[in-house]
Design a protein around this nucleic acid. Structure first.
Lengths: 339, 339
DNA sequence: CTGAAAGCGCTTACAG
DNA sequence: CTGAAAGCGCTTACAG
């Protein structure tokens, strides 16, 4: 029946109408008579015709493709976010062109440029920063950029994050309330806004309580680095009685190290993470953590990017989604606090 | 400097050459004089010109986009595969358009059709099956399809899987060698080739040993179903002394249930999984499992799809990558077997 | 090597 | 409502 690509012209010929008529039948909102619609639909079905999205994109200037830059897929938070992003965007008729990039801004920039080559309608960067130069290029090219789970204050770029400073504070307050006084922090990567903000919140709460941090180390969001940090922490003559870890992914590593050393998290040393990925609630870890509501963050991101696509003038916002403490058993529960 | 999109015509005007000359400078392999190249590169740089990939795709018929269908991103195996897939494809100048689909074939079909609308050069379906009708449409449209981690014998579609039957056998042989004789199987989804093959291998090894399976249940690759299965298994008057679980994702659930019931995996009940995702090696689980080498599977997939894209006539192959036993502590280690 | 021209498959004013 | 025509931004024979 169909050999190779079927075009609107072929459908037009078969239906006995003009090519423009075929186009109109497949263009939502365009006008066509009942009779034309019928003839065209029939011919299209017989031929197996479907409009070429790329051709449509060329003339309309809308590709309905959103570029998404990802990294850190080993941290369960991101695949989850990606999945929901994809589902939410698909539901609105957009699709995701994925690019992977790692830490360096240079790489992220290159990747974003490539995305622009594909005429994406918008760009979402998950946990990745781009240079202000490139942010400007995107702006002049009229391609909205939204940062997911990363802020970039200077850039004025729209972003969606959780309330990281407040979250860091909550972790500290919880640990303080639990009577800990040797609280270490294995921080999230200090080159990222999330890592810095969580640490800042944590430190300020400690300071207000007049407690000095037991130790402060950058765990870089990496499992093996976090393990090294944890080993160092428990090797010394005095140990911390609690560790606030910059994200769950590293907190699991810390708990593994503690247990290997015969220490029981929640009894011997309290561990608090950040993210509340599904694994945190699984029996093996049962991690107390600060929840980043991935659903709400994704929804806000989708809404924001579509908003910017549809109304080009829209003012960029930096949205912060509330983060809340999720109490489990990896850290001592203060009197009167409920699980 | 640049306002909106810069086109090759603008670059041509500035460089004082024809539009075709500009195109040639940006087309690898096309001929242009040294002088032309210089003038064009300069003008392009000044204007911030980059070729419109979509326009190129229209005329060349090559979009350099590969459509990837994913599901089950909660199973760590897939984000990992996706990441490597993306990196490998990016390195070869391709990019990934992601579509999410869940179990129903109808949905997968719809998604694959949408991909074809985007004129993708090829399609990779990860852990998802499509109808033979659609497979045929893809074939007539000359769009190669490769199944990743799923076979579909009847379809004759190219596929890359691990040696699931052999893997299932290995799990059984290991458990048998360990002296277990009440071996249960919480199987992978029986609607999938992986689930069926692993079970088939497992059963055949048991049968050869003259051992009847203690129980056989479809865990559907779902965490909560696996938990229910595990609870049922340990609730009865006699318990299994080993459980082979259809994938690691479910095996973690099983281990969580066992521990909650005060049972120690590897001592009271042996647990063997399938996949060897990173989490399996983490201290909290230390799961004995059958390794699916994701790197090699991805490499084979990439090679295969590119092969089919570049040489349209290529004969479809079903590649099976060896799977091997990874011994850890979640299951009793038979005398003389090494970790 | 280089330019003029056709064409990829569509959408969208423009007349009728 | 409908068709003829222009045009989206490129690549690629075709002459020169």
């Amino acid at each position: 029946m169909e050999r190779g690509k079927v075009t609107s012209a072929q459908v037009a010929a078969r239906a006995g109408v003009s090519q423009s008529a075929v186009s109109r039948v497949f263009t939502p909102g365009a006008s066509a008579s009942r009779k034309t619609i019928e003839k065209v639909r029939l011919a299209a079905a017989e031929l197996g015709y479907r409009p070429n999205v790329l051709a449509r994109a060329m003339v309309s200037g809308k590709s309905r493709i959103i570029g998404v830059v990802v990294a850190y897929l080993e941290n369960q938070f991101y695949p989850l976010a990606l999945e929901r992003l994809s589902v939410a965007l698909q539901a609105r008729g957009y699709h995701i062109l994925i690019f992977t990039a790692y830490n360096s801004i240079g790489e992220a920039d290159a990747v974003v440029e490539e995305m622009m080559d594909y005429q994406v309608d918008g760009i979402i960067t998950a946990s990745v920063a781009i240079s202000s130069t490139l942010a400007n290029r995107a702006k002049t090219a009229q391609i909205p950029v939204v940062l997911f789970n990363r802020g970039q204050n200077d850039s004025g770029l729209p972003s969606v994050t959780s309330a990281n400073v407040a979250g860091g504070r909550k972790a500290a307050e919880f640990l303080l309330a639990g009577g800990h006084d040797r609280i270490a922090h294995i921080a999230g990567w200090q080159g990222s806004s999330t890592g810095r903000d969580r640490q800042a919140g944590f430190l300020s709460a400690l300071q207000e309580a007049g407690v000095a941090p037991f130790a402060l180390i950058d765990g870089m969001y990496k499992r093996d680095i976090a393990m090294d940090c944890a080993r160092d922490l428990i090797a010394g003559p005095t140990r911390p009685d609690a560790i606030f870890v910059g994200n769950d992914h590293m907190a699991f590593a810390v708990m593994d190290v503690l247990r290997e050393a015969g220490l029981v998290p929640g009894r011997d040393i309290s561990v608090v993470g950040y993210d509340d990925v599904p694994l945190s609630s699984w029996g093996a870890y049962d991690l107390t953590t600060i929840r980043q509501p991935v659903n709400r963050m994704v929804d806000a991101t989708v809404e924001m990017i579509i908003d910017h696509i549809e109304t080009p003038g829209a003012t960029p916002q930096q949205i912060e989604i509330d983060s809340e403490l999720q109490i489990r058993s990896s850290a001592r529960i203060p009197e009167g606090w409920k699980k």
